[in-house]
């Protein structure tokens, strides 16, 4: 039954994917890329923060506190993008048995959790002077807190399964399934301010435009790109650490066997 629409294309895709599945090939690209991503990301995010703190004007309503936007929004984006990355790696691990996917999922979890925590912390600090409260159980805040708990659960599961030697330093299939199931929270976070009455305002930037004036908007592009590049560098560092640990463990086992 020719249910697969384009066999040749699929085979080519698989070949392309498996070329990067080889850790040696991956490392050849990852080694120089780590430094580039890290330093360019750092320069961009520091430039964005500096401009956001000292160059842009204050908001008509909120005054100076609007400057928290330049770190709060990238943190929210990366917290959600991180889990999307975990879900995609989980799918690649479960379906294609891609050896690097399991390693990538485990590497993404820590910076993803960090940014989710930063998003909650900066949101709380922003909420006090604007809304008049540190914390409220509205849809956006609650679903973001759930994301943090999902990350913590994933990290605990991933560490436990890596210790048991599942998937060569990567995560077990159960952990991958957890990563896939948790992805349901991502559209809920995104839509929470539209579906439910919430204290958090609606989305400022949509496909149709932005309700943030250009005079205030531009440093956000710098910090979004900067934090994203930095995130990529951290993921590569953590993947390299896991791959090197695998090598050490394999070597030790061979030595022990004599």
């Amino acid at each position: 039954m020719p249910y697969w629409p384009c066999r040749a294309r699929a085979a080519k895709d698989a070949a392309l994917m498996h070329r990067f599945a080889n850790p040696a090939r991956f490392l050849k690209i990852a080694r120089p890329l780590t430094g580039w991503l890290f330093w360019s990301g750092l320069v961009l995010l520091l430039a964005g923060c500096t401009c956001g703190l000292f160059v842009t004007p204050a908001d008509y309503l909120q005054g100076q506190t609007v400057r928290i936007l330049y770190i709060h929004v990238p943190a929210a984006w990366l917290g959600m993008a991180g889990w999307t990355g975990i879900a995609v790696s989980a799918l690649m691990q479960l379906v294609w048995r891609h050896p690097l996917a399991a390693v990538a999922g485990r590497a993404i979890a820590a910076p993803g959790a960090l940014f989710t925590a930063i998003c909650l912390a900066t949101g709380s600090i922003w909420g006090r002077p604007t809304w008049g409260t540190w914390w409220e159980w509205d849809g956006r805040m609650t679903s973001m807190l759930v994301l943090l708990f999902l990350y913590l659960g994933y990290i605990a599961l991933a560490n436990a399964s890596a210790r048991q030697g599942a998937g060569q330093g990567g995560v077990s299939n159960v952990t991958a399934i957890f990563g896939l199931v948790g992805a349901i929270n991502i559209p809920i976070i995104n839509r929470s301010v539209v579906w439910w009455n919430s204290l958090h305002q609606g989305p400022s930037i949509t496909l149709r435009g932005s309700s943030i004036d250009m005079a205030l908007l531009w440093p956000l592009g710098l910090t979004l790109l900067g934090f994203s590049l930095w995130f990529g560098a951290i993921v590569l560092m953590r993947m390299r650490a896991i791959l090197a640990q695998n090598k050490v463990e394999a070597r030790m086992q061979r030595l022990a066997r004599g």
């Binding site: 004007p57 809304w131 008049g132 204290l199 305002q201 609606g202 004036d213 005079a215 205030l216």
Partner: peptide, 12 residues
């Protein structure tokens, strides 16, 4: 009372 603001941000 809590203040709720909308999604607009602009200079004074």
């Amino acid at each position: 009372l809590l203040a709720k603001h909308d999604e607009r941000y602009m200079p004074r």
